[in-house]
């Protein structure tokens, strides 16, 4: 079977983001017998989020395993088996739980290749669910992508649409380096057109999800949908926002972002993660360094406020950046 790309795609139909990931897993497991899956409740249950449903029935218990609640062993299993030529896909369930196994991630997975003088190869994927909005409180709601992006040796993707979820999952599995595949909980049930066959979105390729001339909004994961909603309202005022979804945060497709800013002359970055030290800070700094002369206004950033995610519903809603915040920030920037 040949693998389609965005340029060559045919045969799409609407499925959810989770189904799209699930389909990529099925297709890659079919294609490559070294791909296996392991994590808490991934096999019999098909994952608490439903990501791995049907895989046990199709591929059997040699290819997908339920594990004890032992994140160090789960993620370490990925590192060791990848060093031995397998292509593990493991899950930490909630991204918050990387705290339990951060040494394996930070000091082993990310550094083995370099420390060993390039001899190691670590083709592995870690699945992690991120995001607030479900009343799950401070230990089950975080967006920790910037933490991972800060570690040389890791790659990080964070899709916002079903098609990208499929394409990036395929790319992540075929990648010869460790990739964190961050699923946003509020994207999981969203539907969209997804190619039926094997489909790849290369790591490090951003996507312009809406064209516009007045401002570039660089948005990640669920914030892409909030930005789209804001853009509709901005259009009513005559402001045309261009929205760029980096999709992959490490590596980051800076050229696509710069090209957009050079066209619109203004930029807003927005992510759900706390603003301080977030990926928006990196993107903004790169724009300031590379496209300063094109800017008609200071770059602005939106992100979560400086606190853990609160449980109480009004507080949690207040905590999460939304379309209104994006709308208002853009209006203020452009109309003063």
């Amino acid at each position: 079977m040949t693998t389609a790309t965005e340029a060559t795609v045919t045969g799409q139909r609407e499925i959810t983001y989770l189904q799209a990931i699930n389909e990529a897993l099925h297709q890659e497991m079919e294609r490559d017998p070294t791909v296996f899956v392991a994590g808490v409740d991934l096999a019999a249950r098909g994952d608490v989020f439903g990501t791995t449903r049907g895989i046990l029935a199709k591929f059997g218990s040699e290819r997908i395993m339920d594990t004890p609640i032992s994140e160090n062993a789960i993620v370490g299993l990925a590192v060791g088996s990848a060093l031995q030529g397998l292509r593990p896909v493991v899950s930490v369930m909630f991204i918050d739980f990387i705290g339990v196994c951060f040494d394996v991630i930070l000091n082993q997975m990310a550094k083995n290749k370099y420390m060993f003088g390039g001899k190691a190869r670590l083709p592995l994927v870690v699945l992690a669910n991120a995001g607030a909005g479900g009343g799950m409180a401070a230990q089950h709601s975080q967006s920790l992508e910037a933490l991972l992006c800060h570690i040389p040796g890791l790659k990080v993707v964070m899709p916002s649409s079903a098609a990208d979820a499929k394409g990036l999952m395929t790319a992540a599995i075929r990648e010869d380096n460790p990739v964190f595949f961050i699923q946003h909980k509020r994207c999981s049930r969203m539907r969209g057109p997804v190619p039926e066959g094997e489909y790849v979105v290369p790591l490090g390729s951003a996507k312009v999800v809406r064209e516009g001339r007045d401002i570039t909004i660089v948005a990640t994961a669920y914030m892409v949908h909030e930005a789209l909603a804001a853009a509709e309202r901005l259009a009513e005022r005559g402001i045309e926002a261009e929205i760029v979804d980096p999709r992959s945060l490490q590596p980051l497709d800076t050229p696509t972002i710069l090209a957009s800013v050079q066209k619109t002359h203004r930029v807003l970055t927005v992510h759900e993660a706390v603003q301080f030290g977030g990926i928006g800070a990196e993107i903004t700094a790169q724009i300031a360094a590379e496209a300063f002369d094109y800017l008609d206004a200071p770059p602005i950033r939106l992100g979560g406020p400086w606190s853990p995610v609160p449980y109480s519903q009004p507080l949690e809603q207040e905590w999460i950046v939304n379309a209104n915040d994006i709308h208002d920030a853009v209006v203020k920037l452009i109309e003063g």
């Binding site: 918050d96 739980f97 705290g99 339990v100 009343g135 799950m136 409180a137 401070a138 230990q139 089950h140 609160p310 449980y311 109480s312 507080l315």
Partner: peptide, 21 residues
């Protein structure tokens, strides 16, 4: 209201917190 079911704590009577981890 900041913690919810998984984080109830009452340090005065020695409850050092429920835990989500």
């Amino acid at each position: 209201g900041k913690g919810g079911s998984m984080h109830i704590a009452d340090l005065e009577i020695g409850i050092l917190g429920a835990n989500g981890i």
